[in-house]
Design a protein around this nucleic acid. Sequence first.
DNA 1: CCGCATCCTAGACGATACTG
DNA 2: CAGTATCGTCTAGGATGCGG
Lengths: 103, 103
Amino acid sequence: MNKENHCPLNYTMNLIGTKWKPLLLFHLLEGDLRSGILQKKIPGISNKMFTQTVRDLENDGLIARKVFPVVPPKVEYSLTKRGRSLESILRSLDTWGLEDSQT
Amino acid sequence: MNKENHCPLNYTMNLIGTKWKPLLLFHLLEGDLRSGILQKKIPGISNKMFTQTVRDLENDGLIARKVFPVVPPKVEYSLTKRGRSLESILRSLDTWGLEDSQT
DNA sequence: CCGCATCCTAGACGATACTG
DNA sequence: CAGTATCGTCTAGGATGCGG
Protein backbone atom coordinates (compact mmCIF):
# COMPACT_ATOMS: atom_id res chain seq x y z
CA MET A 1 0.00 0.00 0.00
CA ASN A 2 1.60 3.19 -1.23
CA LYS A 3 1.10 6.78 -0.28
CA GLU A 4 -1.51 7.01 -2.97
CA ASN A 5 -3.28 9.92 -1.35
CA HIS A 6 -6.51 8.39 -2.53
CA CYS A 7 -8.49 11.22 -1.04
CA PRO A 8 -7.98 14.88 -0.15
CA LEU A 9 -8.14 14.08 3.53
CA ASN A 10 -5.11 11.83 3.38
CA TYR A 11 -3.39 14.24 1.06
CA THR A 12 -3.52 16.83 3.80
CA MET A 13 -2.64 14.41 6.55
CA ASN A 14 0.41 13.26 4.66
CA LEU A 15 1.65 16.84 4.65
CA ILE A 16 1.05 17.76 8.28
CA GLY A 17 0.14 14.51 10.00
CA THR A 18 3.24 13.89 12.06
CA LYS A 19 4.10 14.55 15.65
CA TRP A 20 5.88 17.85 15.22
CA LYS A 21 4.80 19.40 11.95
CA PRO A 22 1.61 21.06 13.13
CA LEU A 23 3.37 22.45 16.17
CA LEU A 24 6.20 23.85 14.14
CA LEU A 25 3.90 25.50 11.65
CA PHE A 26 1.78 26.84 14.45
CA HIS A 27 4.66 28.71 16.04
CA LEU A 28 5.63 30.24 12.74
CA LEU A 29 2.18 31.74 12.44
CA GLU A 30 3.30 34.37 14.91
CA GLY A 31 6.20 35.41 12.71
CA ASP A 32 9.56 34.34 11.32
CA LEU A 33 11.92 32.73 13.78
CA ARG A 34 15.56 31.84 14.12
CA SER A 35 16.27 28.16 14.16
CA GLY A 36 17.34 28.04 17.79
CA ILE A 37 14.41 30.09 19.01
CA LEU A 38 11.93 27.98 17.11
CA GLN A 39 13.40 24.81 18.49
CA LYS A 40 13.21 26.11 22.04
CA LYS A 41 9.53 26.79 21.56
CA ILE A 42 8.99 23.09 21.08
CA PRO A 43 9.92 21.39 24.33
CA GLY A 44 10.75 17.75 24.00
CA ILE A 45 11.73 17.73 20.35
CA SER A 46 15.05 16.09 19.65
CA ASN A 47 17.67 17.80 17.58
CA LYS A 48 17.30 15.25 14.87
CA MET A 49 13.57 15.49 14.58
CA PHE A 50 13.70 19.25 14.50
CA THR A 51 16.02 19.25 11.52
CA GLN A 52 14.14 16.51 9.78
CA THR A 53 10.74 18.08 10.28
CA VAL A 54 11.98 21.43 9.10
CA ARG A 55 13.46 19.79 6.01
CA ASP A 56 10.27 17.98 5.19
CA LEU A 57 8.22 21.11 5.53
CA GLU A 58 10.65 22.95 3.33
CA ASN A 59 10.60 20.27 0.67
CA ASP A 60 6.82 20.36 0.68
CA GLY A 61 6.91 24.10 0.22
CA LEU A 62 5.18 24.90 3.48
CA ILE A 63 8.02 26.86 5.03
CA ALA A 64 11.00 28.78 3.70
CA ARG A 65 14.53 28.63 4.98
CA LYS A 66 16.80 31.64 4.85
CA VAL A 67 20.48 31.38 5.63
CA PHE A 68 22.46 34.45 6.64
CA PRO A 69 26.16 34.22 5.75
CA VAL A 70 27.39 35.40 9.11
CA VAL A 71 29.41 34.09 12.01
CA PRO A 72 28.04 32.49 14.03
CA PRO A 73 25.57 30.95 11.60
CA LYS A 74 22.06 32.33 11.50
CA VAL A 75 19.07 30.65 9.94
CA GLU A 76 15.51 31.89 9.84
CA TYR A 77 12.33 30.05 9.03
CA SER A 78 9.11 31.50 7.75
CA LEU A 79 5.82 30.29 6.38
CA THR A 80 5.31 30.25 2.66
CA LYS A 81 2.02 31.28 1.16
CA ARG A 82 1.08 27.64 0.97
CA GLY A 83 2.02 27.12 4.59
CA ARG A 84 0.03 30.12 5.69
CA SER A 85 -3.03 28.75 3.97
CA LEU A 86 -3.08 26.11 6.68
CA GLU A 87 -3.63 28.71 9.37
CA SER A 88 -7.31 28.13 9.92
CA ILE A 89 -6.79 24.40 10.15
CA LEU A 90 -3.99 24.77 12.66
CA ARG A 91 -5.99 27.12 14.81
CA SER A 92 -8.98 24.83 14.65
CA LEU A 93 -6.91 21.89 15.83
CA ASP A 94 -5.55 24.00 18.65
CA THR A 95 -8.90 25.39 19.72
CA TRP A 96 -10.63 22.02 19.60
CA GLY A 97 -7.94 20.42 21.72
CA LEU A 98 -8.14 23.21 24.22
CA GLU A 99 -11.89 23.05 24.63
CA ASP A 100 -12.15 19.29 24.52
CA SER A 101 -9.44 18.74 27.11
CA GLN A 102 -11.36 20.85 29.54
CA THR A 103 -14.40 18.62 29.34
CA MET B 1 9.23 11.21 25.70
CA ASN B 2 5.69 10.29 26.70
CA LYS B 3 2.38 11.19 25.18
CA GLU B 4 2.25 14.16 27.50
CA ASN B 5 0.01 16.14 25.20
CA HIS B 6 1.95 19.21 26.16
CA CYS B 7 -0.22 21.40 24.03
CA PRO B 8 -3.76 21.38 22.65
CA LEU B 9 -2.48 20.84 19.15
CA ASN B 10 -0.88 17.56 20.00
CA TYR B 11 -3.83 16.62 22.14
CA THR B 12 -5.99 16.76 19.05
CA MET B 13 -3.44 15.09 16.82
CA ASN B 14 -3.11 12.20 19.23
CA LEU B 15 -6.83 11.58 18.86
CA ILE B 16 -7.16 11.77 15.10
CA GLY B 17 -3.62 11.86 13.79
CA THR B 18 -3.30 8.43 12.26
CA LYS B 19 -3.63 7.14 8.77
CA TRP B 20 -7.23 6.02 8.92
CA LYS B 21 -8.97 7.81 11.75
CA PRO B 22 -9.86 11.02 9.93
CA LEU B 23 -11.14 9.07 6.97
CA LEU B 24 -13.29 6.85 9.10
CA LEU B 25 -14.79 9.75 11.00
CA PHE B 26 -15.36 11.62 7.78
CA HIS B 27 -17.49 8.89 6.29
CA LEU B 28 -19.60 8.69 9.42
CA LEU B 29 -20.45 12.35 9.05
CA GLU B 30 -22.90 11.32 6.37
CA GLY B 31 -24.75 9.01 8.72
CA ASP B 32 -24.53 5.77 10.66
CA LEU B 33 -23.06 2.82 8.81
CA ARG B 34 -22.84 -0.92 9.08
CA SER B 35 -19.38 -2.24 9.68
CA GLY B 36 -18.99 -3.82 6.27
CA ILE B 37 -20.29 -0.81 4.40
CA LEU B 38 -18.01 1.54 6.28
CA GLN B 39 -15.02 -0.64 5.59
CA LYS B 40 -15.78 -0.77 1.88
CA LYS B 41 -15.82 2.99 1.79
CA ILE B 42 -12.17 2.97 2.77
CA PRO B 43 -10.27 1.29 -0.05
CA GLY B 44 -6.93 -0.07 0.96
CA ILE B 45 -7.57 -0.50 4.65
CA SER B 46 -6.73 -3.93 5.99
CA ASN B 47 -9.16 -5.87 8.08
CA LYS B 48 -6.92 -5.55 11.07
CA MET B 49 -6.48 -1.81 10.85
CA PHE B 50 -10.18 -1.28 10.39
CA THR B 51 -11.00 -3.11 13.58
CA GLN B 52 -8.19 -1.50 15.48
CA THR B 53 -9.01 2.01 14.33
CA VAL B 54 -12.65 1.56 15.13
CA ARG B 55 -11.73 0.31 18.58
CA ASP B 56 -9.47 3.25 19.27
CA LEU B 57 -12.09 5.72 18.21
CA GLU B 58 -14.65 4.00 20.39
CA ASN B 59 -12.35 4.01 23.40
CA ASP B 60 -11.73 7.70 22.89
CA GLY B 61 -15.45 8.29 22.78
CA LEU B 62 -15.50 9.64 19.26
CA ILE B 63 -17.73 6.97 17.80
CA ALA B 64 -20.34 4.59 19.18
CA ARG B 65 -20.72 0.91 18.40
CA LYS B 66 -24.11 -0.76 18.36
CA VAL B 67 -24.44 -4.50 18.10
CA PHE B 68 -27.68 -6.05 16.86
CA PRO B 69 -28.29 -9.55 18.23
CA VAL B 70 -29.23 -11.08 14.92
CA VAL B 71 -27.95 -13.70 12.52
CA PRO B 72 -25.88 -12.95 10.61
CA PRO B 73 -24.21 -10.45 12.93
CA LYS B 74 -24.90 -6.77 12.39
CA VAL B 75 -22.91 -3.89 13.81
CA GLU B 76 -23.45 -0.21 13.26
CA TYR B 77 -21.15 2.69 13.92
CA SER B 78 -22.11 6.27 14.55
CA LEU B 79 -20.49 9.48 15.67
CA THR B 80 -20.84 10.52 19.28
CA LYS B 81 -21.42 14.12 20.19
CA ARG B 82 -17.73 14.47 20.78
CA GLY B 83 -16.94 12.92 17.43
CA ARG B 84 -19.36 15.18 15.66
CA SER B 85 -17.67 18.20 17.17
CA LEU B 86 -14.75 17.41 14.90
CA GLU B 87 -16.84 17.96 11.81
CA SER B 88 -15.53 21.38 10.90
CA ILE B 89 -11.95 20.21 11.30
CA LEU B 90 -12.50 17.17 9.14
CA ARG B 91 -14.17 19.17 6.41
CA SER B 92 -11.40 21.74 6.54
CA LEU B 93 -8.77 19.06 6.08
CA ASP B 94 -10.71 17.64 3.17
CA THR B 95 -11.31 20.98 1.50
CA TRP B 96 -7.75 22.14 1.90
CA GLY B 97 -6.39 18.94 0.40
CA LEU B 98 -8.78 19.20 -2.49
CA GLU B 99 -7.88 22.77 -3.34
CA ASP B 100 -4.18 22.43 -2.72
CA SER B 101 -3.82 19.31 -4.82
CA GLN B 102 -5.24 21.17 -7.77
CA THR B 103 -2.55 23.82 -7.58
C1' DC C 1 24.85 28.23 16.25
C1' DC C 2 23.27 24.94 13.28
C1' DG C 3 23.04 20.66 11.35
C1' DC C 4 24.54 15.93 10.02
C1' DA C 5 25.56 10.86 10.91
C1' DT C 6 24.80 6.75 13.41
C1' DC C 7 22.59 3.45 16.06
C1' DC C 8 18.52 1.92 18.27
C1' DT C 9 13.50 1.01 19.73
C1' DA C 10 8.48 1.09 19.68
C1' DG C 11 4.59 0.86 17.36
C1' DA C 12 1.94 1.58 13.13
C1' DC C 13 0.65 -0.99 9.47
C1' DG C 14 -0.08 -5.08 6.21
C1' DA C 15 -1.02 -10.18 4.71
C1' DT C 16 -2.97 -14.19 5.83
C1' DA C 17 -5.60 -17.50 8.13
C1' DC C 18 -9.12 -18.70 11.42
C1' DT C 19 -13.69 -18.53 14.72
C1' DG C 20 -18.73 -17.72 16.27
C1' DC D 1 -20.88 -10.76 8.72
C1' DA D 2 -17.82 -9.30 12.08
C1' DG D 3 -13.91 -9.83 14.55
C1' DT D 4 -9.38 -12.16 16.32
C1' DA D 5 -4.66 -13.97 16.15
C1' DT D 6 -0.15 -14.25 14.48
C1' DC D 7 3.64 -12.95 12.14
C1' DG D 8 6.31 -9.87 9.56
C1' DT D 9 7.93 -5.16 7.73
C1' DC D 10 8.89 -0.48 7.76
C1' DT D 11 9.40 4.00 9.44
C1' DA D 12 8.72 7.69 12.82
C1' DG D 13 11.05 9.02 16.40
C1' DG D 14 14.82 9.30 20.30
C1' DA D 15 19.82 9.47 22.17
C1' DT D 16 24.24 10.61 21.42
C1' DG D 17 28.18 12.50 19.39
C1' DC D 18 30.83 15.05 15.60
C1' DG D 19 31.88 19.10 12.36
C1' DG D 20 31.75 23.68 9.86
